[in-house]
Simulated assay, not measured.
Amino acid sequence: MAVFTAPRPVIAKGKTYSKPRNPLVAPSLFRRAGSHGSPVQGQRQQTKQLLRFELKQLAKSIDDNGP
């Protein structure tokens, strides 16, 4: 695995930092959080309503035809 080092500022008496930088930090600072697609809750509610409606229609058709 490669060690990522970037130029570091010179500190007292000409020494520099020797610790490598974390390569995952810089890209993560530029990312923005947000939603990832449509909300699942709305889809779930919609399918529940549709199922309820279809069950009512089925019960109604069974009652209308009767045994």
Rank of each mutant, 00 (worst) to 15 (best):
37 G>H: 06
67 P>L: 11
51 L>R: 12
57 Q>E: 15
32 R>S: 13
13 K>H: 12
30 F>K: 15
63 D>P: 00
22 N>Y: 07
19 K>D: 11
47 T>F: 01
58 L>D: 05
57 Q>F: 02
25 V>E: 14
60 K>Y: 09
55 L>C: 03
46 Q>R: 15
11 I>S: 12
62 I>H: 07
55 L>V: 04
15 K>A: 07
41 Q>W: 06
47 T>Q: 13
20 P>N: 13
61 S>Q: 14
8 R>E: 14
65 N>S: 15
43 Q>E: 03
36 H>Y: 02
22 N>K: 11
28 S>V: 00
9 P>V: 07
16 T>F: 04
36 H>S: 12
27 P>V: 07
40 V>K: 09
28 S>H: 04
45 Q>M: 07
22 N>E: 10
27 P>L: 06
27 P>F: 06
49 Q>T: 14
28 S>G: 11
9 P>H: 09
4 F>H: 14
28 S>I: 01
43 Q>K: 04
18 S>Y: 00
10 V>M: 15
12 A>F: 03
67 P>E: 08
36 H>E: 12
37 G>W: 04
11 I>Q: 13
40 V>L: 12
37 G>V: 08
32 R>Q: 12
4 F>C: 03
8 R>L: 09
37 G>D: 10
1 M>W: 02
13 K>S: 05
18 S>K: 15
13 K>I: 04
65 N>R: 14
65 N>H: 06
14 G>T: 01
46 Q>I: 02
50 L>F: 05
1 M>H: 05
36 H>I: 08
56 K>S: 11
31 R>M: 09
11 I>G: 05
56 K>R: 14
8 R>S: 15
18 S>W: 00
37 G>E: 10
49 Q>N: 13
8 R>F: 01
10 V>K: 14
67 P>K: 12
8 R>G: 06
36 H>N: 14
59 A>T: 04
21 R>C: 06
67 P>D: 14
33 A>Y: 01
31 R>D: 03
48 K>A: 13
43 Q>I: 03
13 K>R: 13
66 G>W: 01
3 V>H: 02
30 F>Y: 10
37 G>Y: 08
3 V>D: 08
49 Q>K: 13
2 A>K: 13
64 D>L: 05
3 V>F: 02
33 A>W: 01
40 V>P: 00
60 K>T: 07
61 S>D: 11
44 R>L: 11
22 N>P: 01
32 R>P: 00
54 E>Q: 10
57 Q>I: 08
13 K>Y: 07
34 G>H: 08
10 V>R: 12
6 A>F: 08
67 P>G: 05
61 S>A: 15
60 K>R: 15
4 F>G: 00
41 Q>P: 00
34 G>C: 02
11 I>A: 06
51 L>H: 02
56 K>W: 12
38 S>D: 12
28 S>T: 06
57 Q>S: 11
40 V>T: 08
30 F>W: 02
1 M>N: 09
36 H>W: 01
33 A>R: 12
5 T>Q: 13
64 D>T: 12
52 R>Q: 14
21 R>G: 10
